[in-house]
Design a binder for these strands. Structure first.
Lengths: 162, 162
DNA sequence: GGAATTAAGGATATATCATATCCGAAAGCA
DNA sequence: TGCTTTCGGATATGATATATCCTTAATTCC
């Protein structure tokens, strides 16, 4: 049970977009080169963010992506679910139904006890991600990454945005 | 990010094994027929439980599987990890390292901030599973499943154990 | 208006992994 | 001796993640 690598890419891209000056867009090309990722494939992750209305896009030169909301209004779960989907990690196939000792239609009343426990754990995972805002990540990064590196990163990336 | 179906199978099988009379074993064949599962493939899940020392086995007729510990000494996480592995759901490929503005070897000091958050969520998932004991599941089942169905299920399965 | 650049999305190829089956070896029971 | 069992290896298949290519439409700049 491993998350898609696109989840990692999307999170890092959102962190960069969160530090962008007002009104500026960043292209797939710039984000791909900054992170050393395949441009065409990263594009799919960014499209997922776009479909989830987490980012806005514009075409043409100096076009690309920017956040659709402020970083404090975006949480980790939104980003993760945008590229990974909202499906729960545990799928109940209701194998108890195959028990030959159970009368037909018996299992209709309540979800399987095993599934309820697994879903509870899944919800704990989601809850944790839901509680972390993109602004929290940006805060951590600006504490941990030396200011000059952080600044030159944005200069580098904005130069590529034209 | 979906768990293997073998996780579901292992959990249901453990629930049955937990209700077994002292000293009795249950074969793969019996467990497969009870749940309507492919015997050969279910066998792989049970082998995983065996390798994790959650169940004990014996060969020959009337052989099969039984729990290696009491149900209150087995938690959900042990069972899930036995078949799914202990790897975290998020793998950090350290793409920040590709940032051309960072000096080489800069990222060695601390794990990536993104990864730390994802791992925290992963740990919340594991914590929830760790807190649920197999005996809790058995308790829930004996509350929810009518006693006569529960009893006839074990009669059915023990008849196949010889 | 024309050239360059961009996101969007469809089509396709490849690699990895989950799913599933089969077989032989070793061990226990009648 | 013959039957049953677990165990592990080998193999096949299907689904999905990864990756690339191409076309279309929109936007900017000259």
């Amino acid at each position: 049970m491993i998350l898609k690598s696109q989840v990692e890419w999307a999170l890092h891209c959102c962190a960069i977009l969160a530090g962008l000056p007002e009104g500026r867009y960043l292209s797939t090309k710039a984000l791909a080169e900054l992170h050393g990722l395949p441009k065409e494939y990263l594009s799919k992750a960014l499209q997922s963010l776009s479909q989830a209305s987490l980012v806005e896009t514009t075409l043409g030169p100096s076009g690309g992506y920017r956040l659709a909301k402020t970083p404090s209004d975006i949480n980790f779960l939104e980003i993760v679910e945008a590229v990974e989907g909202k499906a729960r990690s545990f799928t109940c196939t209701n194998i108890r139904e195959n028990n030959p000792c159970r009368p037909a239609g018996y299992c209709d009343s309540k979800p399987c006890a095993v599934a309820r426990i697994m879903w509870e754990a899944d919800e704990a995972w989601r809850d944790t991600l839901r509680r972390v805002r993109l602004s929290d990540l940006v805060g951590t990064l600006s504490e941990e990454v030396p200011a000059d590196i952080w600044r030159s990163t944005f200069e580098w990336v904005l130069k590529r945005a034209g």
